[in-house]
Every structure is written in structure tokens, then in C-alpha cells.
Simulated scan of single mutants.
Amino acid sequence: MMKSRSTSKLAGFTLLSVACLTIMVGCVIVPGLPSIASALGLPTSASWLVTTPSLGVVLFGPMVGRLIERAGLRRALCIGLFLYGLLGVIGVFLRGPYVVLGDRLLLGGATAIVMSAGTGMISALYEGSARLGMIAKQGMSIELGGVIFLSIGGVLAASGWQFPFLLYLVAWVMLAMVWMFVPDVDLQSDGDAQGQSAPVSAGLKLVFFSASASMILFFTGIIALPLMLGSLELSEAQTGYFLSFISLVAVVAASQMPRVARSIGENQTLVFAFVCYVVAHAIFALSPSILSAVCGGIAMGCGFGFSVPLVNHMTVEQSPVAQRGRHLAYLSMSIFLGQFLSSFIDIVASNTQHVFVTAFILGCFAVATVSITHHRLRARAGSR
């Protein structure tokens, strides 16, 4: 198997660029969402255009794992990138809720392939500290992609509702880059039998839970913050800048994640990430002001930056080589399930403050669950 020392910089850059597509799937149409929804025949269901791809990742995740095992990482990634560009751009020609949302659902399936195979390629081409560093950079790329594509999508939406859909064709540019710069790898290099079925370990189940919980807590804030900031008389543009600021904080936190994980341990870093979420939502709930919003935004960005790249790394480290594709697909399902479920928080919370209080309680539950479960797993391993 090719290792990190022989992997070219162009291959690494390509795989980090591919990571941007995971958050791009929904955010490119957000700036022009009202006009896009109206033009496509969904004037009262605009939010479903953003959240349906997340549901698609969850529904198609199991099939994605089997595709990666049968086709291989590089071929699966190429298939995913081709479908991502095709299903994304044809959305501009579709009309009516069933056809449009069906396309967005399939786009989620393509996103699951890209996300799982992309992380799988990193896990196969890098090892040890180099792998952890690349996965941290992958988390940074995801957040930077959100900043970049939100900005470009806004500029394109100002010229016409159709133009943001052109951004999906970036996937075809990346397909060419993968074909030229990323070497093929063999999932079976460590001697694992392809297709060998093994139950998901308790440790991995905790990782998948952590991934879903992190995304619920992060996107709950992203959904509720514009309402809170609007009450503080911030304009839509200023709100956009604030959300971009949170993404930039997450980028910085992700860059420091490997150092923190080596210092205090992976599970302790995960607990710390959830503590950051708890602090953020407590601040948002108790003291709505510009200064407190900035402090809460820093805490929330740290929660994302310390958790999402880490759960990618932990999934790779705890998965047998032949099972990595399947487990990374499960991780993708967990991440996007959390994103999808976050949109339902307002069902149980009657106003913005209650949304933050609900998220605060969920964050405390996540801290307790990760801490207690890790302690039990460690005690069980020590007794053997």
C-alpha cells in the first residue's frame, strides 16, 4: 500500500479539495434560496432543498459501503464525483416538488460516496501522524469550503437564480484531478478478506453517536443564530459575516486538533468539544448580546473543529482495513443524520431561547454519554 511519504502534494491537495464538496451540497443554493425555491416550484418548502441531500446520505449510506468494497476507493470516488456534478447541475432544469426533491435525495447519495471514499483514500495513502494531520486538514477544508462556496453562491445568485447550480460542476474538475493525480490503492493490503462481515464495535458506536450529536449541536446553532442576531439588529450581510467567522474559528480549531488529541487523548478531546458546545449554547440562551454572541461563536466553532475531524480519524483507526469503506459510510450517515435532525429542534422549542436551552441540555447529555461510555469501555478492556 502506498504510504504518506510517497504521496504527492497534488494528490493531497486533490483529496482536500474533494472534502469541500460535502458541505457545498447544500450551501451553494442558500444565498438565493427563496428565488430558487420559487422557480423550481417549491415556494413553501425551500428548506427541504437544503436538508433533503442530508436525508439522502442517511438512506444510501449502507449501499455506499458495499459499493466501495466492490469497486475500490478510487473508482468509487470517481463515480461519486461524476454523479455529484450531474445530479447537482440538472436540478436547474427540473420542476415540481417530487422530481426536484427526488433529485436532491439522489444527490445526497452521491455526496455519501464522495465523502466516504475521499476519507477512505486519505486513510489508505497516509498513516500515523501524517494521517491525523491530513484528516485535520480535511476538517479545515470542509469549513473553508462553506465560507468560499457561500460567498461565490451569493455572487452568482445575484446574477440569476440558475447560476449557483453551476458550482456543482466543480465536482467534474475534481474528477479530472483525481484521475490524474491520485493513485489507486488496495483495501486488502493488510490481509483482510474483502466482504468479511464483522459487528460494529462499541467504540465505533460511540464515535458514530458523537458525530451525530456534534452535527445536531452545531447546525442547531446555525439555524437559530440568524433569528437571534436579527433581534440584535444585525443585517443579513452582517449575519452572514458572523456565520463565516464561526467557520473560520472551526478551521483554526481543526488545525490544532492533532496537537490537543496527542496531549490529552482522543476521547478527552471529544469530551472537550462537547463542553465547548455546551458553553456556546448556554451563552446564546442566557445573554443575547453582540459581545456574548462573539464568545459563543468562538466556543461553537471550537466544538466543530475539535470533533468532526477527530471522529473521522477515530473511525479510520478503529476499523479493520477491509471494513473501512463500510464504516466510513456509516460515519457519513451519522454526520448527515445529525444535520438533518437539527432542523426539527424548533418542533420542541417554541422560541429561539428555548432552542438554545434544548441544545444546551443535549450537549450536557453528550458530555455525560461520551465520558461514561469511554470509562466503561476502558474498564472492560482492562479486565480482560
Rank of each mutant, 00 (worst) to 15 (best):
Pro320His: 12
Ala329Tyr: 02
Val316Pro: 01
Tyr277Ser: 05
Thr358Trp: 05
Ala329His: 03
Val308Ala: 11
Asp346Arg: 09
Ser334Pro: 12
Ala366Tyr: 07
Ile290Val: 14
Val278Phe: 15
Leu337Asn: 07
Asn312Ser: 15
Ala299Tyr: 08
Phe340Ser: 05
Gln318Gly: 03
Pro320Asn: 12
Phe365Asn: 10
Leu310Gly: 10
Tyr277Ala: 10
Ala285Tyr: 05
Met300Cys: 14
Ser292Asn: 13
Val311Asp: 13
Phe365Asp: 07
Ala293Tyr: 03
Ala285Glu: 08
Asp346Gly: 10
Cys295Tyr: 09
Gly338Gln: 07
Asp346Glu: 14
Met314Phe: 04
Gly303Gln: 04
Leu362Gly: 08
Thr315Gly: 05
Pro320Val: 09
Phe274Asn: 06
Glu317Gly: 01
Val348Glu: 00
Cys276Phe: 07
Cys295Arg: 01
Phe356Lys: 06
Phe365His: 03
Leu291Gln: 11
Tyr277His: 12
His281Cys: 04
Gly305Ala: 06
Val321Leu: 14
His313Gln: 10
Pro288Tyr: 04
Gln318Asn: 11
Phe356Cys: 08
Thr315Gln: 06
Phe356Ser: 12
His281Phe: 12
Leu310Thr: 08
Gln323Phe: 11
Val311Trp: 08
Pro309Leu: 12
Tyr330Ile: 04
Phe360Glu: 10
Ser307Pro: 03
Phe340Arg: 09
Gly297Cys: 07
Val278Ala: 15
Phe344His: 11
Phe306Tyr: 14
Pro320Leu: 13
Val294Phe: 02
Gly297Lys: 08
Tyr330Asp: 09
Ala293Glu: 04
Glu317Trp: 01
Ala349Tyr: 12
Ala285Arg: 03
Val278His: 04
Leu337Thr: 08
Asp346Pro: 01
Phe356Asn: 10
Ser287Phe: 10
Phe284Gln: 02
Gln318His: 09
Ile298Tyr: 05
Met314Thr: 11
Val311Leu: 09
Ala366Met: 07
Gly338Met: 09
Val355Ala: 07
Phe274Leu: 06
Ile290Glu: 05
Ser292Ala: 15
Arg324Met: 11
Ser292Lys: 06
Phe360Ile: 07
His327Cys: 00
Leu362Ile: 12
Gly296Phe: 01
Val279Cys: 11
Ala280Glu: 03
Gly305Pro: 06
Ala299Met: 15
Ala366Ser: 15
Gly296Arg: 00
Ile345Phe: 01
Asn351Ala: 04
Ser287Leu: 08
Val355Arg: 13
Leu286Asn: 10
Val316Lys: 02
Gln323Asn: 14
Ser343Leu: 02
Gly303Ser: 05
Leu291Ala: 15
Val311Thr: 14
Gly338Arg: 11
Ile347Asn: 07
Val278Trp: 14
Ile347Tyr: 08
Val357Pro: 00
Val321Ser: 14
His354Asn: 13
Met314Val: 13
Gln318Glu: 08
Val355Phe: 00
Pro320Phe: 11
Ala359Tyr: 12
